[in-house]
Amino acid sequence: MSRTVLVVEDEANIVDSLSFLMKQAGFEVLVARDGDTAIRMMQSRPADLILLDIMLPRRDGYEVCREIRSNPSWDSVRIVMLTARGHDFDRRKGMQLGADAYITKPFSTRDIVSCVQDLLGPETS
């Protein structure tokens, strides 16, 4: 059974590229364009990993992260935060809220793929 990556990002082109990369790495890809949708999608079909942009409409990435981490049933869900803002402050806040990794835009495609693979571990049948 293949593992699922939820891409939460409001820039269509970036969603495009992330979907392409994740599918290519063998993951099933779900897409949410804002925070509310992301939470709703998690409730209907939990993903194994979330690629989470911070600057999102409606509910920002931090809030989504906090919400995910406040629900014990989602403890195993990995969260990779993406941000176009390079401040250390943002990184610290993300890690404090329980993100597993933090990637700054523009990212290297190889880095992001290996990061996701590392977090999810080798595929088990």
């Binding site: 970036i14 990369l21 835009k105």
Partner: peptide, 15 residues
């Protein structure tokens, strides 16, 4: 604002 288009450019270029 600058990083957002750059992200797309870079990732598609790498792809």
């Amino acid at each position: 604002e600058l990083r957002t288009p750059l992200t797309s450019i870079r990732s598609f270029s790498e792809i």
